[in-house]
Computed example of a mutant assay.
Amino acid sequence: MKRFLKNNGLLLANLILFLAFLVGTAISGWHQYNEDQLAHGQAIETLGGYITSGAFMEAVFENWESEFLQMGMYVVLTAYLYQRGSSESKPLGKPAEQDQDPRTAEVNPDTPWPVKKGGWVLAVYEHSLSALFFILFALSFILHAVGGAEDYSSEQAAHGEPGVTVWEYLATSRFWFESFQNWQSEFLAVAVIVGASVFLRERRSAESKPVAEPHYFTGA
């Protein structure tokens, strides 16, 4: 068990933090939702009812949507673009291991199965990381729209107005405001780490260059 925890500590720590903050989102969102319900003279909701509501779905997936978009774009952009001096960039002026054509790689027992298989399987596999993020982005985008349409329709009903379909909700400024306000913050965060990692360091972090490394050195 100790070996397992050491080998997977980074993943496990992030999953634990994710679950903790998701629970926090559910509980705090539930209280906020009921405060709004009481302010409008409507019945309060149970926690179970809230986490299956459009309000909670919208709140969660509009954030997931931006995270997966950010990471998908980051994977693709770092494949083709460079930033001199940044630990987030491939090195300039020399071949990077990531650019190696897997079709010319020496195959051994530990080589991933898709590389051994070749053909269309390898073609899919060599772009599978970005594909995963964009698929998750698309699913989150859809669920954000579904949850948002349900929540928006509930608000409309409380004011005696007709509800909307998912397609109609996609045409509202509210949906795009929710999306853009999250998207812009994600790319700002990426720009900050790309630029800051040129001059600043974090000892022991894989996201930083060695502390004594010159500013102009590019790559991890």
Rank of each mutant, 00 (worst) to 15 (best):
F4M: 00
S86K: 03
L17G: 06
S173I: 10
R203S: 11
V166M: 04
T46H: 06
G49I: 07
L11E: 08
Q156K: 14
H215N: 14
L139M: 15
P91H: 09
F18Y: 14
Q70T: 00
F56V: 06
Q181G: 01
A189H: 10
L129H: 08
H159Q: 14
V198N: 03
E58S: 06
E213T: 13
L136S: 06
D99W: 14
V211W: 05
I193T: 12
L136K: 08
F18T: 11
H40A: 11
V107E: 04
N14K: 08
A189R: 14
V107R: 02
I51E: 03
S179T: 15
M57F: 12
E168Y: 06
L129P: 03
S28Y: 09
G219I: 10
G118C: 02
T78M: 09
G48I: 10
F61G: 06
L136P: 02
F18S: 11
T25H: 15
L77E: 04
N108K: 09
W64C: 13
Y50V: 00
T218E: 03
A189S: 12
T78Q: 07
Q37K: 15
A158P: 01
W30R: 11
E213I: 00
L200M: 13
A138R: 02
A96K: 04
D110P: 00
G148S: 05
V76F: 06
F21N: 10
A79R: 13
W120H: 00
L132K: 12
S89Q: 05
G41D: 03
W176D: 01
L19F: 15
G160V: 06
H127V: 14
V190L: 12
I44P: 07
R204C: 00
S185F: 04
V121L: 07
V192D: 02
E213N: 00
N8L: 05
Y125H: 09
L136M: 12
V75W: 09
G160L: 02
S197R: 09
L77H: 04
L170C: 07
P214E: 01
E202V: 11
A26S: 09
L19R: 12
A149I: 10
A96N: 10
S130W: 10
Q83T: 14
K94P: 05
K117I: 00
G119D: 08
A105K: 00
F4W: 11
N182S: 08
G29P: 08
S205E: 03
L38N: 07
R174N: 15
P109E: 07
A55W: 04
K117E: 09
I142M: 13
S89Y: 08
H215V: 13
L47G: 02
P91T: 08
P91K: 05
A206G: 06
F141D: 02
R174A: 12
P112R: 04
G160E: 05
I135T: 11
L143R: 10
V211A: 07
V107I: 15
V164H: 02
A171H: 10
V121D: 03
A145S: 10
E62R: 15
E45A: 12
W120R: 00
D101Y: 05
K116T: 07
Q42Y: 11
L19S: 13
H144L: 12
A206Y: 05
V166A: 01
E213Q: 13
E202A: 14
A220E: 07
W120T: 10
I193P: 01
R3V: 00
K90Y: 01
N63T: 12
S179W: 15
F175Y: 11
G93D: 01
Y82M: 07
I135M: 11
